[in-house]
Design a protein around this nucleic acid. Sequence first.
DNA 1: TCCCTAATGGGAAGCAAGTTCCGTTAAGAT
DNA 2: ATCTTAACGGAACTTGCTTCCCATTAGGGA
Lengths: 210, 210
Amino acid sequence: MEHNSRLEAASLTPGTVRPGGRTAKVRAAVLEATQEALVEGGFHGLNLDRVAARAGVGKTTVYRRWGSAAALVADLLRDMAEQSLPAADTGSLEGDLLANAHLVRQTLTDPRMGPVFQAVIAAAACDEECATALNGFYATRIHEWVPCVERAAGRGEVPAGTDAGEVVRAVSAPLYYRFAVSREPLGEADAVRAAGAAVAAAKAGWFTGN
Amino acid sequence: MEHNSRLEAASLTPGTVRPGGRTAKVRAAVLEATQEALVEGGFHGLNLDRVAARAGVGKTTVYRRWGSAAALVADLLRDMAEQSLPAADTGSLEGDLLANAHLVRQTLTDPRMGPVFQAVIAAAACDEECATALNGFYATRIHEWVPCVERAAGRGEVPAGTDAGEVVRAVSAPLYYRFAVSREPLGEADAVRAAGAAVAAAKAGWFTGN
DNA sequence: TCCCTAATGGGAAGCAAGTTCCGTTAAGAT
DNA sequence: ATCTTAACGGAACTTGCTTCCCATTAGGGA
């Protein structure tokens, strides 16, 4: 009975029964290769065969463990969500959000991360699993920056009852809009404007939760 | 000489020498079928063969005139940009921008147009021609709403020198961010918040062009 | 109205993508 | 240290998107 359940678990998701050593190494190599492939060819040009070759892994392994380009990107997103970087604490809300806006712009205009985010957004638009993974990624990212808004509320910089997450989203939104939707150039002035506008709207009480 | 140049033009881009009648009908049918296919299968599932069949057109025609899924979407975007709808004029900036936010939310949550925009954003992330076309689409859309901000500036509702386009972008940004990036649900409360925050930031002078 | 040829349409061939089979390697329990 | 079997890797196979070819249709100038 127990023997059967172990077999079943293994046949459903390879890599879960023996996650150590080789399995972990293969995953790391494949995700690294996936990211490189996305930088070069975008989501549309993602090819499981080439990813396998680049990772130095048999293509059968990639097809078996992931099965599709979308699943590969979804796993990459879960991996990216785990690597969190700490938020700023400059002492003022405007300083913190400016740091956030600067970081977002830095990331989106980065020659390596820019294409990755482009691809990841495209993947989420094509596949529901990717959409969920991308949602999870931003949920953690937003959660990391919530404290600096809550500190500002404690200092009285924004009204009590301000939805911290909504303020953080308001900073990213204009930058991502230019980056992924209207496809306009993204300058440092846009980052400054995004942070400033978010603070102004927050102080005016537009982000107080219902 | 002139004869040759006409031949050359024809061989480069089919449909340019005899644009009337059948050619125009084929384009309309193909773009209509493309939109339907995007609604059902997204950009990743876009298949030139099936588009041709659905349009009641030979598949060779689609492959010859467009050649790729990305080119098909790019042409659809150019077609969409031409069909402009007039902006609101309620008498106040907040009223106009609320109408705009409401319209954007309406469009993105529409069971037909939502998937189309999803697909179009994905296509732009995959292909440079689509990216340019998408940029052009939003350039015209933003341009349509610029007058209502300029009227507000004339009434003294926002500082002189306010970048009207930037205000319009500020309204759409949070809605598109939720829709395409963070993948969160999009409610009417988000539309109200987006319009209100944009007005507050504009009045605070954060959108005054350099 | 007639003619020239741009543009379309169907089918067959080519090619690259994904899928499956089966032998080999090494993780982890005893 | 040994054994069981999860997980990997190479190669053959299959599917389906794309392109080529040539016959057919119809736009637009004379």
